[in-house]
Write a protein that binds this DNA or RNA. Structure first.
Lengths: 162, 162
DNA sequence: TCAAGTCAGTTGAAAGTTCAACAATGTAGG
DNA sequence: CCTACATTGTTGAACTTTCAACTGACTTGA
């Protein structure tokens, strides 16, 4: 992009070589990693990663049930997207929706036994993939660094988006 | 399979706390970061990130033109996806397709002046967003670490997928 | 109590991606 | 040369995500 600069007075500050290298490596690594994980999950468990995450979140809470808006926040998906996704999960029999007893606007998504079983089938292969593609690529020190870096990014984006 | 099986166990080896922390921070950071960048680009330049990347790749090569398959590799998209995307870019007048002179199967995607201008309009805001959300979140040491980590992941996935 | 405003969740259409199938061309071996 | 196979790129259908509009229910303040 070095030449596609407008003739504006306020020249943006482009990335230097180190910044460029980090940014590209980061972006590319996420692409190849999440592609690989998606394909593994689709192939071995016939579900997209988004479904898997919904099932995971539900499985981890008391009663295996969450308000739709909670679930949307925890999976970082829009309400619309979650609504469509849960509709499809309901068709598969993995989740059911129930009315919320304390708020009549609310809906509660609840993991079914079938859904729990589907998650149980999918999880080992997925964890193995995460381990082989990510964990084993790094040493312990890098793992710590990655955690710190991730947390810093999360904090910065949250601050900027506020 | 990264399965630390005992003599008879088929229990997968789950992630320990450190691994879990790194994995979740990494995954969550990519979600929030790429969401923020996507929204910035969509809002300020009316284009999805995928379009931007195609334009960037084309802008960086001699003649601002690439074979479709080259372009697909460099943006890590499937051929089908690229084909659809370039069709839409062509509708916008940002790219044109030409026959490849040396291989009659081939098509060459070429950046137009309009496309170049669109990229020029979009780039400063995008770079600013990358800088404020990613670069400024990290110190120089972390930037180096991130580059090394990204490169390690890329190598590991490439090895595993081979 | 009621009106205005907010919040929860859904919906349908548009936009984008994936998947499998396909036509056309190139390549290699007998 | 001819056959078999591989590669390039496109297509349409199915699927997923996004966007804007919408319903119904909660909340607040007068």
């Amino acid at each position: 992009m070095a030449d596609a600069r407008g003739a504006t007075s306020t020249e943006p500050r482009w990335l230097d070589d180190d910044e460029q290298r980090a940014w590209r490596a980061y972006m590319w690594s996420t692409k190849v990693l999440f592609d690989a994980l998606d394909r593994q999950l689709q192939r071995d468990a016939d579900m997209p990663h988004a479904y898997f995450e919904i099932l995971v979140r539900l499985s981890e809470v008391e009663g295996q049930a969450l308000r739709m808006s909670e679930l949307a926040d925890q999976t970082r998906s829009s309400r619309s997207r979650l609504s469509h996704a849960v509709a499809r999960l309901e068709e598969r029999g993995w989740v059911v929706r129930e009315d919320c007893p304390t708020d009549r606007r609310g809906q509660i998504a609840k993991l079914t036994d079938t859904g729990y079983a589907a998650l149980g089938d999918a999880a080992p292969g997925h964890v193995a993939a995460v381990r082989s593609f990510l964990i084993e690529a790094l040493d312990r020190e890098q793992l710590d660094q990655l955690a710190a870096i991730g947390e810093a990014i999360i904090a910065k984006v949250a601050a900027g988006a506020a």
